[in-house]
C-alpha cells in the first residue's frame, strides 16, 4: 500500500525533531553536570539522540525529494516547521527534572521503537532496529536515576516529585493521533500512538512506584508541538542558539 508522501514526511519529521530538540537540550548539560560520570552520560545520550536525528531527518529529506539534507532540515527551518512534542523542548530545570523528562521520553521511545522494528517501510524498520539498542541503555539509566533520586533524600524526593508534577501534563501529547497517524497505521508503517499508552503507563507506573513517587491524577495534556500548531516560547530560544552559525554564515562547514 502506498502512502501519501507528505504524510510520511510529517511522520519522519516528528521522529527526527523529537530526537533533535531533546538531543540539543541534553547537550546543554555538557560541562555542567553534578559529577563527571553524569556529565559523560548526558553527553553520550545527547550524542545518540543527534545520531538518531541524522537517520530520521536524512530519510525525511530523501522522502521530501527537494535535494535537501538532514542538516538543511535541522538548521534552516523555523519554529513553526518543527514537529517535536512539547516535552522535548522544555528547559532542563535542575538535574532531576532533566532525568525525569529523559525517563518519560525514553519510556515512550522504548515502546514505540519496539513496534517500528516491524514497520512495513524498510528504512523506518532499519532505523528503529538501530535506535532501539541505544534506547534500551537510555531507559535503563534514566529509570535507575529516577529511582535513585526519587527514593533518595528528602530533598531529592521533593525535587523529583515536583519534576513529575510539572512534566506529566506534557506526556499526553505523545499519544495523540491525527490523520498522519491514521495513514501510517493503515499503511503498516507505524502504530497508532494511542495504542501504545497502556504499555507505557505500565512501565512508567512500575518505575515511579519503585521511586516512591506519586503519579499525578490529571490527564490534561499540553499539545501543539507534533502538529506544529503552537510550540512553547522555549523552542524559538533553543533554535536561536542551535541555528545561529548556519544563519549567520550560510553554508559554513566544520
Amino acid at each position: 500500500m502506498t502512502v501519501d508522501k507528505n504524510l510520511l514526511l510529517q511522520f519522519l519529521l516528528r521522529q527526527g525533531d523529537n530526537t533533535l530538540i531533546l538531543g540539543h537540550r541534553v547537550s546543554e548539560w555538557c560541562g555542567h553536570s553534578p559529577v563527571l560520570e553524569e556529565d559523560i552520560a548526558l553527553a553520550n545520550t545527547a550524542l545518540d539522540l543527534i545520531g538518531q536525528t541524522q537517520m530520521w531527518l536524512g530519510y525525511a529529506a530523501e522522502v521530501q525529494g527537494e535535494g535537501k539534507t538532514a542538516d538543511d532540515l535541522a538548521f534552516l527551518r523555523d519554529a513553526w516547521d518543527f514537529r517535536n512534542v512539547l516535552l522535548t523542548e522544555l528547559p532542563n530545570g535542575d538535574f532531576g527534572q532533566t532525568l525525569m523528562r529523559q525517563f518519560l521520553f525514553d519510556a515512550f521511545q522504548s515502546v514505540l521503537m519496539g513496534r517500528l522494528m516491524s514497520s512495513s517501510d524498510e528504512t523506518v524498520a532499519a532505523i528503529a532496529a538501530k535506535t532501539s539498542k541505544e534506547v534500551a541503555y537510555h531507559v535503563e539509566r534514566s529509570a535507575d536515576t529516577v529511582v535513585g533520586l526519587g527514593d533518595g533524600t528528602e530533598e531529592s524526593h521533593a525535587r523529583m516529585q515536583a519534576a513529575l508534577d510539572f512534566l506529566w501534563p506534557y506526556v499526553g501529547e505523545m499519544f495523540e493521533s491525527d490523520e498522519t497517524d491514521a495513514a501510517m497505521a493503515a499503511a503498516g508503517i507505524a502504530p497508532d500512538p494511542a495504542s501504545l499508552r497502556a504499555e507505557y503507563d505500565a512501565l512508567v507506573a512500575r518505575v515511579l512506584a519503585e521511586a516512591t513517587l506519586t503519579l499525578p491524577e490529571g490527564r490534561y495534556a499540553h499539545k501543539g508541538g507534533r502538529t506544529g500548531r503552537m510550540h512553547t516560547e522555549h523552542l524559538g530560544h533553543l533554535l536561536a542558539q542551535m541555528q545561529w552559525l548556519q544563519r549567520a554564515y550560510p553554508g559554513c562547514e566544520w
Partner: peptide
C-alpha cells in the same frame, strides 16, 4: 558498575 556510559558511546565505566 560506575556508569552506563564511558569515554565513547560503546563503552561503560
Amino acid at each position: 558498575k560506575l556508569s552506563q556510559f564511558g569515554s565513547t558511546p560503546c563503552k561503560a565505566q
